[in-house]
Design a protein around this nucleic acid. Sequence first.
DNA 1: ACGGGACCAGACAGAGTTGTCTTGATTTTT
DNA 2: AAAAATCAAGACAACTCTGTCTGGTCCCGT
Lengths: 210, 210
Amino acid sequence: MEDTVHDFCPNGPHGWSFAAKPPKNARDRIMSAASYLFCNHGFAATGVDTIIARAETAKATLYHHFSSKEELIAAVLQAEGETWRAWFFGRLAEVQGPARTRLLAVFDVLHEWFSDPGFYGCPFINAVAEFDTGNDAVRRAAEAHKEHLVTWLKAQAIEMKAPDIIDTARSFAVLIDGAIVAAQHTRDPSFAYTAQRMADGYLRSIGKAG
Amino acid sequence: MEDTVHDFCPNGPHGWSFAAKPPKNARDRIMSAASYLFCNHGFAATGVDTIIARAETAKATLYHHFSSKEELIAAVLQAEGETWRAWFFGRLAEVQGPARTRLLAVFDVLHEWFSDPGFYGCPFINAVAEFDTGNDAVRRAAEAHKEHLVTWLKAQAIEMKAPDIIDTARSFAVLIDGAIVAAQHTRDPSFAYTAQRMADGYLRSIGKAG
DNA sequence: ACGGGACCAGACAGAGTTGTCTTGATTTTT
DNA sequence: AAAAATCAAGACAACTCTGTCTGGTCCCGT
């Protein structure tokens, strides 16, 4: 329950990286505090009072920028998703080599993510787990996020002329989700490599051995 | 948000199956109602008033059986885990053949689970996602549950003389978690078979081809 | 210098939260 | 049949929650 700040992420920007240095304007401070608290303590469990205390601002300011807590949640999820994807796909864009190499590098990047001391799992997986039935906005946000990922996976599959594009994307999606959850629960980043070995085996099995 | 009762599960007992027929004693009614509400609407989002309304009992009765909401959550998770494992391992025990066949049958059983209209994901994954930091009791319950699963996986790996027992168990754990999350998010049970194909590929790759 | 926007501090209302307690009714056990 | 456990209904206290509102401060562009 320690509220020690590890708002700095050496590996890449996801969530708490908002506040590598405390942002000056109130809106960003609120976003940063809300991201941290929502992701670490849950959405329902985090009250606006806690958020404004951490953001060192006033309640009026929060409701000046966001019409409701629900809207703040939506904004946080959106920002979190954008930041994460920019970091994730940015890392992958640096990878030299064919699509196959890039697909396997996914799990190196995941390992980097899992190794961050502030790693709390995927915000979208956690949000859907918390709201599930009901809150459609959250579910749609999660779907949109996953859609980005699947699109990228399909593009790689197409580039490497995989025999079944959709099956390849779905298989990788399962491996990625599984690695995230396993790493979150056990706090053991090496599940990224467990998934990577299976991904390698899958790619070999579809006849694209390196 | 429909509170229509599908408290009956044709496939197997997990969670709401508590109340295939409304239990007579109040304690079981409370457990059944709490299981359903916690799993479908979240733990924090479900108040005790909602629980007693669904259980058709009184608040005093709830607090007579459980000293606090937290204790009720723990009891629900424990019962949910026991019921699910009894069903899951029971199904697997029916499978004829060697360990390899049983390991692959895992995903047939998962598919059965995912196909239930009331499927809401794994209660432990959802609970850890909601509480994460903080609540150690929940985290320990999830660890214990996963430990049961891993133990079973290791036993199969040993029986089939897999070269690396731990890697086999970890790989299957990733596939199972990934399939659960993917199926929960997309409401598409067939992710069980996506995972199954990867499991089959993994088993082939370690030289235990059928 | 002055007007306006962004901001802080905190009181406040109304609803909802957990948990206690009282008062009986019903069922089970002895 | 008597005693004991279980249960229902609901009032109640103490607290927290979201969201509104007032009052005042700072800063920035013109």
